[in-house]
Structure formats: C-alpha cells, structure tokens
Simulated assay, not measured.
Amino acid sequence: MNVFLWIVAGVLAAFFLGAGFTKLSQSKAKLGENPQMGWTKDFSAGTLKLIGAAEVLGALGLILPGAFDIAPILVPLAASGLAIIMAGAIITHARRKEYPVIGINTIVLILALVVAIFRFGPNSF
C-alpha cells in the first residue's frame, strides 16, 4: 500500500506542479485564451496567482516531507488542502456549466482524498 500511495502522490504532485506553474507563469489574459480555462475570467489576477501558489506548495508538500522524513504530517495536510482546491474547482465548473471538466476534477479530488485518508490513518509515516 505504501508504494501505491507514493505513486498516487507522485502523479498528483506532477499534475499540480504543472497546473500551478501555468497559473503562476502566465498572465490572466493568456490563461483566458485557453478554451478550457474560461473560468479564469471569473477571478482576479491575484486570486489566480494565489491558486497557482497553493497548487505548487501542495504538490511539494505531497512529496518532500515524506521523502526527507521532516514533518511527515504535512503530506496528508497537503493532500487535504489539494482536495479542498479540487472541491472549489468542481463548484466553479458546475456554476459555469462546464460539465466535462468536472469528471477530471472529481478523479483528482478522489486521489487526493485517498492520500489524505491513508496517510493520516493506517499508512502514515
């Protein structure tokens, strides 16, 4: 189970690093040009940067504390935070009637919850 949780955490970290760095490195206008990022028009540029920073920090929190055995409680806390971000994403896309994207968000939410639950519980470090 430990190997499975590391794999899931690695996949989540890669996903959130990519998503977070995209939000941090591109302007709001550039993000809005992407048809799948239409939701960015509903948020300020500062909020988008905050979401991006939270995603990057959450991705680092999934891997680094467990890998270096420094404050490993941060792993399930990071997974919980990322799950909250995904719940917000689901709500945002539902309000905008962007239903196809909700499926991806739901899968990512479930994976984050799996890491959080098992790292808080039976497979903690």
Rank of each mutant, 00 (worst) to 15 (best):
G10L: 04
A71E: 14
F68K: 14
A71G: 07
A116W: 00
D42Q: 11
A59I: 02
S80C: 05
F125T: 07
I63P: 01
A71V: 14
A112P: 00
P76E: 06
V108E: 02
H93S: 08
A116V: 05
E33I: 08
V11P: 01
G52F: 05
L50D: 12
V114L: 09
I90W: 11
T92Y: 07
I104Q: 07
I90Y: 14
I7M: 03
F68N: 14
F68D: 12
A112K: 02
F15M: 15
L31V: 07
V75F: 01
V3G: 06
P122A: 10
M1A: 12
R95K: 15
N2A: 09
L64Q: 03
L5A: 01
I117E: 03
I63G: 01
L24E: 03
G61V: 06
P100G: 11
I70W: 10
A94P: 06
Y99M: 15
V108K: 00
L82H: 03
A78Q: 04
G81C: 07
R95H: 14
I51A: 15
E98Y: 09
A67V: 14
K28A: 13
L60V: 08
A9K: 01
A9L: 03
A19C: 02
K28S: 10
G58H: 05
F43N: 07
L113K: 04
S27G: 14
P100C: 13
I90V: 15
P122V: 12
I51C: 06
F43Q: 03
L50F: 15
V101A: 10
F118H: 06
I110P: 00
G32F: 12
G20K: 00
E98P: 08
P76C: 03
T22M: 10
T106D: 06
M86F: 05
K97S: 14
G121L: 13
N34G: 11
K49L: 06
A59H: 00
N123I: 04
I7Q: 01
M37P: 13
T47P: 07
F68Q: 14
I7D: 00
P72W: 08
Q26M: 11
P65G: 05
W6C: 10
I84V: 15
A71R: 06
A79N: 03
R119L: 00
V114D: 01
